[in-house]
Amino acid sequence: MKATFQVPSITCNHCVDKIEKFVGEIEGVSFIDVSVEKKSVVVEFDAPATQDLIKEALLDAGQEVV
């Protein structure tokens, strides 16, 4: 499964690193693409990962998800 999250609070590479760390810890996540320019995060994943778990990880990383 693939999901795109709009994350307007992404401003720098530190944000990218933190997002990759938090989302990458979720079992089932196979790909993460964070774009500072587009302020988006694209995640490819399989169970047990879910969109809700990914959104929670983004929030835990200090990001706003819309």
Rank of each mutant, 00 (worst) to 15 (best):
1 M>C: 14
1 M>Q: 13
1 M>N: 11
1 M>W: 09
1 M>P: 03
3 A>M: 10
3 A>E: 06
3 A>T: 07
4 T>H: 11
4 T>G: 05
4 T>A: 07
4 T>C: 12
5 F>T: 00
6 Q>I: 14
6 Q>S: 12
6 Q>M: 12
6 Q>P: 02
6 Q>Y: 15
6 Q>D: 09
8 P>V: 11
8 P>K: 11
8 P>L: 12
9 S>Q: 06
9 S>T: 12
9 S>N: 09
10 I>C: 13
11 T>Q: 09
11 T>N: 08
12 C>V: 07
12 C>Y: 11
12 C>N: 13
12 C>M: 09
14 H>T: 15
14 H>F: 13
15 C>R: 06
15 C>Y: 08
15 C>S: 11
15 C>W: 11
16 V>R: 10
17 D>G: 08
17 D>W: 14
17 D>P: 06
18 K>V: 10
18 K>Q: 08
18 K>L: 12
18 K>I: 12
19 I>R: 00
19 I>Q: 00
19 I>C: 02
20 E>P: 00
20 E>Y: 15
20 E>W: 14
21 K>C: 05
21 K>H: 08
21 K>S: 07
22 F>V: 11
23 V>S: 01
24 G>Q: 07
24 G>A: 08
24 G>W: 13
25 E>L: 14
25 E>D: 11
25 E>H: 09
25 E>I: 11
26 I>K: 03
26 I>F: 02
27 E>N: 08
27 E>Q: 11
28 G>E: 00
28 G>F: 03
28 G>H: 01
29 V>Q: 02
30 S>Y: 12
30 S>Q: 10
31 F>M: 08
31 F>G: 07
32 I>K: 02
32 I>L: 06
34 V>D: 01
34 V>E: 02
35 S>T: 04
35 S>Q: 08
35 S>D: 12
35 S>H: 06
36 V>E: 04
36 V>Y: 06
37 E>H: 09
37 E>R: 09
37 E>L: 10
37 E>V: 10
38 K>M: 12
38 K>D: 09
39 K>I: 05
40 S>Y: 14
40 S>R: 14
40 S>T: 14
41 V>W: 04
41 V>M: 04
41 V>E: 01
42 V>Q: 07
42 V>I: 12
43 V>A: 03
43 V>M: 02
44 E>C: 15
44 E>H: 14
44 E>S: 10
45 F>R: 00
45 F>M: 00
46 D>E: 11
46 D>S: 14
47 A>E: 09
47 A>W: 14
48 P>S: 01
48 P>V: 02
48 P>H: 01
48 P>K: 01
50 T>A: 02
50 T>Y: 04
50 T>V: 03
51 Q>G: 07
51 Q>N: 07
52 D>T: 09
52 D>A: 13
52 D>H: 11
52 D>N: 09
52 D>S: 11
52 D>V: 10
53 L>V: 07
53 L>S: 08
54 I>C: 03
54 I>R: 01
54 I>H: 00
56 E>W: 12
56 E>K: 15
56 E>I: 12
56 E>T: 12
57 A>L: 04
58 L>T: 03
59 L>D: 04
60 D>C: 12
60 D>Q: 14
60 D>Y: 12
61 A>D: 02
62 G>Q: 06
62 G>S: 06
63 Q>E: 05
63 Q>T: 06
63 Q>C: 15
63 Q>Y: 15
64 E>V: 15
64 E>F: 12
64 E>N: 09
64 E>M: 13
66 V>S: 09
66 V>I: 12
66 V>M: 08
66 V>C: 14
